[in-house]
């Protein structure tokens, strides 16, 4: 373990069994025990190694299906690696998708406490940052409204506000930001910068290349589960655009 590293990934591979080859029922399991079919697997991440330093603002780009989200899910502990190791030093919060983790029939206020609990906070910790969260989200007037009446922009505001105020060492943000309006997106970036200044590690997945170039200290370009390029955002993006044009 190296203390300067937030995340150490060594020879990580992740394979998924294609859904129609998965044994779902007792019968299938028993039948398959006798004649083994060739099981179709897709490799989502293929022998990937990277060290992410504490305090980095890392951008991840790449076409759909490159394994970006799978990588984030492995880092956050949702998926287990098929082989290789991932070591995460420090606590982690992720903002991967809108709506997930929120109950549409509960008020925004109730949802803040529920979501906070899902991210591993105690009730007091949520209470202490409650005002900051609603100020940031600019939703003071809507706290007693049910979540289902929120527009997707408002849902984003609430979700990002909670995730970015939980005070974890590492913050993972997936493409969700794209539904926000210009001014809120800016606000999110400012917030991420502030967290970055405080020494937090931030990983941002986005298709908004401009955003990555302006904000990240380093970028990686993923393609078919491998690292195609790592380095200065400008250089990595240029490489991505060049290979993208050939498609």
């Amino acid at each position: 373990m190296n203390n300067n590293l937030a995340i150490e990934i060594k020879n990580l591979s992740k394979e998924f069994v294609l859904p129609h080859h998965r044994r779902k029922t007792l019968k299938e399991t028993i039948v398959n025990k006798f004649h083994k079919k060739n099981i179709n697997k897709i490799s989502a991440i293929d022998n990937l190694s990277i060290d992410i330093k504490t305090g980095e603002f890392l951008g991840i780009i790449g076409p759909n299906g490159a394994g970006k989200s799978t990588l984030l899910k492995i880092i956050s502990g949702i998926y287990l690696p098929s082989s290789g190791t991932v070591v995460v030093n420090g606590s982690l919060a992720s903002f991967i998708e809108l709506r997930v983790g929120f109950q549409k029939d509960l008020t925004a206020k109730d949802n803040i406490f529920l979501y906070g609990a899902l991210l591993g906070l105690t009730r007091n910790e949520v209470k202490n940052s409650y005002d900051k969260i609603i100020n940031f989200a600019e939703l003071q007037r809507f706290m007693d409204q049910k979540y289902k009446y929120f527009s997707s922009g408002m849902q984003l505001r609430l979700g990002f506000a909670i995730t970015s105020h939980v005070n974890k060492d590492i913050l993972l943000v997936d493409e969700a930001l794209s539904v926000g309006d210009e001014s809120f997106q800016k606000k999110c970036l400012v917030k991420m910068h502030n967290l970055h200044k405080k020494g937090k590690t931030i990983i941002l997945v986005s298709h908004n290349l401009n955003m990555i170039e302006k904000n990240c200290t380093r970028a990686i370009y993923m393609k078919e589960g491998t690292l195609e390029s790592v380095g200065k955002p400008k250089k990595v993006i240029a490489k991505y655009l060049r290979s993208d044009n050939t498609l």
């Binding site: 109950q103 029939d105 529920l114």
Partner: peptide, 20 residues
């Protein structure tokens, strides 16, 4: 490793289910 936040999660889920 963190019993207080674990039981807070259980509590919040119970409250949410009950309200729903």
């Amino acid at each position: 490793s963190d019993p207080s936040s674990y039981f807070n999660l259980v509590k919040e889920m119970v409250i949410a289910d009950f309200k729903l």
